[in-house]
Amino acid sequence: MSCTALLSSSTLRAMYEISADPARLDVPRIHAWLSTDAYWALGRTLAKQESAIAGSLNFGAYHVETGEQHAYARVVTDRATFAWLCDVYVAPAARGQGLGTSLVAAARDHLTPYGLRRILLATHDAHGVYARLGFEPLADPAKWMALGLQ
């Protein structure tokens, strides 16, 4: 993470627009980010990424002046009871300014009207970022199970 000071929320809003419009997604860029630089998605194929995007609620953060996408987050949800926040990624040049936190906050706020019971995520190294937004470790992780197919 960069040592750059966090930008104020008003500065971030002036620099970036966060949108859930799937037509704005730069899919080749998202694929390149995730398949080459995200530990959880290394080697993911473009076809697999396109399928994941098609079945999800997607968020992009776009630089206001250039329109270039600088961050991405994906939510798998039934829009009624449950959501899984995943594939949160900020381009290296845009890190350390609070953009990831703003992106996740926007996704959380977008989901609020659905009245979901739970939003889950998994992270190897960003617990502090998510904790600032209200995420907590599972109260009883022994209740949870997973089926790994690959």
Rank of each mutant, 00 (worst) to 15 (best):
Y39V: 07
D125A: 15
L25R: 06
I119V: 14
L138I: 00
R29F: 01
Y130H: 02
V129F: 06
Y72P: 07
L99N: 04
D26T: 01
S9L: 13
E68A: 11
H63D: 11
C3K: 15
L116G: 08
Y39A: 06
A122S: 12
I119P: 00
S2D: 15
D140P: 00
L46V: 10
Y89S: 10
V76Y: 13
A23E: 13
L46Y: 14
F59Q: 00
A52W: 00
S56N: 09
V90F: 02
V64N: 10
G134I: 13
M145Q: 03
W40E: 04
Y16A: 08
L57D: 04
G115D: 01
A126N: 01
I30S: 02
S19E: 02
F82V: 08
A32K: 10
A91M: 05
S102W: 10
L7Q: 10
T123N: 05
P28M: 10
A93Y: 07
A131T: 07
F82E: 03
V129R: 05
L25P: 02
A71Q: 09
P28V: 09
L12R: 15
R24N: 11
R108M: 09
A23Q: 11
A41E: 05
A131G: 05
D87C: 09
G134E: 11
A54S: 12
R117N: 04
A52T: 11
V76K: 11
L133F: 05
R95V: 01
A71W: 00
E136P: 03
A73G: 12
H127A: 09
A91S: 12
T45W: 04
H110N: 09
I18E: 06
M15I: 01
L111K: 01
W33K: 00
P137Y: 14
P141Q: 03
G148E: 07
S102C: 11
T123P: 00
T77M: 09
T101F: 08
Y89D: 07
A122D: 04
Y16Q: 05
